[in-house]
């Protein structure tokens, strides 16, 4: 099946007027397409324009130039009343949850359909079903202040889903949560994507979120998308410095600078510290024994890491090659020939 597009950014730029009449460009010529049913991540440091970008999707922010399409509708160019109707098809959750403190969990989830004309028992059934779905069936009548962060976000998710939206926008939705709760919420989002087929757009500064949840990712650097593609290829072969930086935050293959600087590894002559990243696991095990045999080089494994991304393995090794200069050179040449990415980290 060919995936159909649900959101498209067409040359979107956004400027904010600052107090001193200077204009601050937050988004610069953003082009991206989000396919129906996919999980799309946007990663960037704070101030990169992520929040503005995601708010262009539901028209909370409007581009200065360019258009944002929601299917065939130009979302930045429709009357307010229509925009409000379209917003019901786009749920959103936030870092700070934004639950109404003076409403119970039930009333919070019911708020978006309060004025929908649905009968009371229909609303009740709907809310109950959603709270069941997010795993909070017994919290109907409590107030948000008594809930934990993870529970609050679950309520917020239920509230965002009550209009049966086609898209769920997540603005740093796990950034205020601890790692375990983050993992639980990400699992829930993944399940919603599986079970409801809902398109999910995530903005975050945490690569772990992208790694655990997303299929596609765009890297945003001061308002510009510097790289985008499917998550596996990006992790396997990042093109941009910033992307590499983000990826390195979730990789165990990074030797801290202290290790490299302090000579802890005691590299001696004829030793070379390298990092290899491979995308095809079958290649790796023979590789180590192969180079040992063929080039008479000892491969001393310092660290290894493997992760499963999109059901495909992705991994790497940091090793010290030990042998004669010529043999090491031949080994490096050989590894390069295998289309395995090799990085020389240090030598004696």
């Amino acid at each position: 099946m060919v995936a159909s597009e649900i959101i498209r950014f067409d040359h979107v730029s956004k400027e904010f007027e600052k107090n001193d009449k200077q204009e601050l460009q937050v988004l610069k010529d953003v082009n991206l397409t989000i396919n129906e049913g996919s999980i799309f991540g946007i990663i960037g440091y704070s101030g990169a324009g992520k929040s503005t970008l995601i708010r262009c999707i539901n028209g909370i922010e409007k581009p200065t130039t360019g258009d944002v399409y929601f299917r065939d509708t130009v979302i930045n160019n429709i009357p307010n009343k229509q925009l409000r109707e379209r917003r019901k098809e786009i749920g959103m959750i936030f870092q700070q949850f934004n639950l109404m403190p003076s409403r119970t969990v039930f009333e919070n989830v019911a708020l978006p359909i309060k004025y929908s004309g649905l009968a009371k028992d229909e609303i009740k059934a709907k809310v109950n079903q959603l709270l069941e779905l997010v795993g909070l069936p017994d919290k109907l009548d409590v107030y948000p202040s008594t809930l934990s962060g993870g529970q609050k976000q679950r309520v917020a998710i239920a509230r965002a889903l009550v209009n049966d939206p086609q898209i769920l926008l997540c603005d740093e939705a796990t950034s205020a949560l601890d790692p375990q709760t983050t993992a639980d919420i990400l699992k829930l989002l993944k399940r919603l994507n599986d079970e409801l087929g809902i398109t999910i757009v995530v903005v975050t500064h945490e690569m772990q979120v992208i790694e655990d949840l997303c299929e596609y990712v765009a890297v945003l650097d001061t308002g510009k998308i510097v790289e985008q593609g499917d998550v596996y290829s990006m992790f396997a072969d990042p093109q941009q410095e910033l992307t590499r930086k983000f990826i390195s935050t979730t990789s165990k293959l990074n030797l801290p600078d202290e290790v490299l600087d302090s000579d802890l590894l005691h590299l001696v002559d004829n030793q070379l510290l390298i990092k290899i990243t491979y995308v095809n696991t079958e290649a790796i095990e023979p590789l180590i024994s192969h180079i040992s045999r063929q080039f008479e080089v000892d491969a001393n494994i310092i660290v290894g890491d493997i992760k499963i991304l999109q059901q495909k393995p992705l991994g790497g090794l940091v090793i010290i090659l030990d042998g004669t200069k010529a043999n090491i050179e031949a080994t490096v040449q050989y590894i390069n020939d295998q289309n395995i990415r090799l990085e020389v980290l240090d030598h004696a």
Binding site: N58, G91, Q96, N98, K114, Y115
Partner: peptide, 26 residues
């Protein structure tokens, strides 16, 4: 909290509904 108003807008509530259900109620 500005976030409460924004979440009302995100839900597709009209300005009058936001005034009633969020500004005044909260």
């Amino acid at each position: 909290d500005e976030g409460l108003i924004e979440s009302g807008q995100v839900m597709g509530l009209s300005p009058m509904q936001i005034i009633w259900s969020i500004y005044l109620k909260e």
